[in-house]
Design a protein around this nucleic acid. Sequence first.
DNA 1: GCGGGAAATTGGATCGTTCCAAATCCAGTT
DNA 2: AACTGGATTTGGAACGATCCAATTTCCCGC
Lengths: 344, 344
Amino acid sequence: MNGRRVTVTDIARGCGVSRATVSLVLRGSPLPAAATRAKVEAELKRQGYVYNRAAANLRQRRSSSVALVINDLSNPFFADFAAGVDEALGAAGYVTLLGSTGESPERQQRVLASLMEHDPAGIILSPAEGSDGVSLGQVLGVHVPVLVFNREPSHVRWSASHWDYLALDNRRGAALATRHLLERGHRRIAFFGGHAESSSCRDRRRGYAEAMRATGLEPEPGWFVETAPTRLDAAARTASLFTSRRIPTAAVCYNDAVALGLMLGLGARGLAAGHDFAVTGFDDIPEAAVSTPALTTLATDPRARGRQAAERILERARRPDIGAVRGIAPVRLIIRASSEANIA
Amino acid sequence: MNGRRVTVTDIARGCGVSRATVSLVLRGSPLPAAATRAKVEAELKRQGYVYNRAAANLRQRRSSSVALVINDLSNPFFADFAAGVDEALGAAGYVTLLGSTGESPERQQRVLASLMEHDPAGIILSPAEGSDGVSLGQVLGVHVPVLVFNREPSHVRWSASHWDYLALDNRRGAALATRHLLERGHRRIAFFGGHAESSSCRDRRRGYAEAMRATGLEPEPGWFVETAPTRLDAAARTASLFTSRRIPTAAVCYNDAVALGLMLGLGARGLAAGHDFAVTGFDDIPEAAVSTPALTTLATDPRARGRQAAERILERARRPDIGAVRGIAPVRLIIRASSEANIA
DNA sequence: GCGGGAAATTGGATCGTTCCAAATCCAGTT
DNA sequence: AACTGGATTTGGAACGATCCAATTTCCCGC
């Protein structure tokens, strides 16, 4: 319980060799003689030595950590992503510096500034809503490798920056869901939920609209309903779908939370999702598989995305010279009962 | 994009003062004259200086990080806990070193060893299932403050250790749910689900039994049903409740997953939870509020637990001498429709 | 017994910061 | 002009590891 930690100097003194030799043993160099190595190793164990990586990193001018900044950890999608990042970083001998911002750009600035002081080898940032690329550029400086995940901050000149980008294939995902509903015979299909100005919502709307037009259908303005990306707001705005001149028989929803909210809202109007009205989501959160009805949605494998992000940032740390990479991760349509509705 | 980071020496040279003076300015000491301070600050901005906290920590022999090791980040309960920890640590100027173990004790050992090398000011550990206190003691050593969250590793001699402990008030929670059902007039109440050997299940069963006896009722052996803590297994074992000589009219469930499973199982037997049979859960997962019927359960506020854990570990880092603390966090009964059943 | 070359070991400087004791500065007194 | 004492400033040694050039040890053949 008393203070002072054991250092290489203590070990060196304890077994009559120099600090340099102890250091060689610690790093598994082949230089030390077998007998010396054994002697040192015994002493390390005897004194309960713990390596001080901070000191080593200082001398070696390198870093053994990567910062991970997450906008919303309580969202299982991001929590899984974080787990994936940590898993891959750990396997590569790096440690994860966590920062969560709770979707606040101001807090994000503070968190990033604090993490930068710990000299991370790279930064994986899932930006808070409303992040500004210029402010980000200010805290992050120009030296540290950065990977932006999932959504685009405003005012980023990607062409001029060295930031990597990794996002889901929102456009194709929404198109897959839309085509699925079209194949089931639906023609009046709405796009429900999300903040229209967010980059992910824009992309999903675009995929939806393209799939519609590819079948010769033009989405009506009344079929776009904007909501907060939460169950509650989605439920509250269900009515908006039924004021349109041509009432939709199905909806591609911005994400699962919104879809579940819509199903609640439909229930309140006496409509059964999956029977009177078809619904699809996005994300495949655990609840999607067990809701009533089970939700047709797009699986994104956030854990694998996390591993991918970690590997990419480490690769960039190794070779800072290569140009920025834009990665779009595939999504997979999972068909369940909620899209089984008959056509009204 | 080129290498070399700016150091105090660069700043000192850049504005003709000594390193020591720059350091004083950096730390906001009142010693430097206003004019000097201004000059230095301008230079700091001009060169885009970033503080190197690792170097400072080395010199000052202190640490500005706390390690957080989580058994299962993809569980929203723990993800929320992590968010709370990070929030409180960040507010106190500390950084979170994250490690996730995926419920593997072996990986937990590796993760802890790696984190220890970064010299954290403390460790918050939510142990993997099957953790062994002796192995933990080996990696953690005896110097670093430790707080164990939520479950007890085996073979820990708490009386001899300096580890803090923080868990939910399982016993009182189960008692609250039981009393609630008793007040609604139920007399034949079962305790449904969970692995009897887990510490949390033991505690909850105990709270239930105590509440029953306090009303002069003796729980019958047939009223204890063991299940895996999952929806599926709970649904499958519903029948066991109805083989008893005196068939229960209500059940206190081990957790929400089990309760939701039981409600499914009841439905399959033609019974409506909340109408023909009363059910309570534990955890208040997001789904509990929106299931049909909505689930009466115990809210545990994991985020607040996280803040609490962070504050406790920082307090201990400040004063390592005080004895170990065992903390039991309150839980709150949330009454919803699932416990509204009439008495059969 | 000795020169020579490989193998093993080592002292001292260094990473970027802070600590500390000592040095310098600058009125204001005598 | 010398002196005083508070306010500022500063050089150099740490912190715990690693790098590097230099030194010591060891073994071999002659």
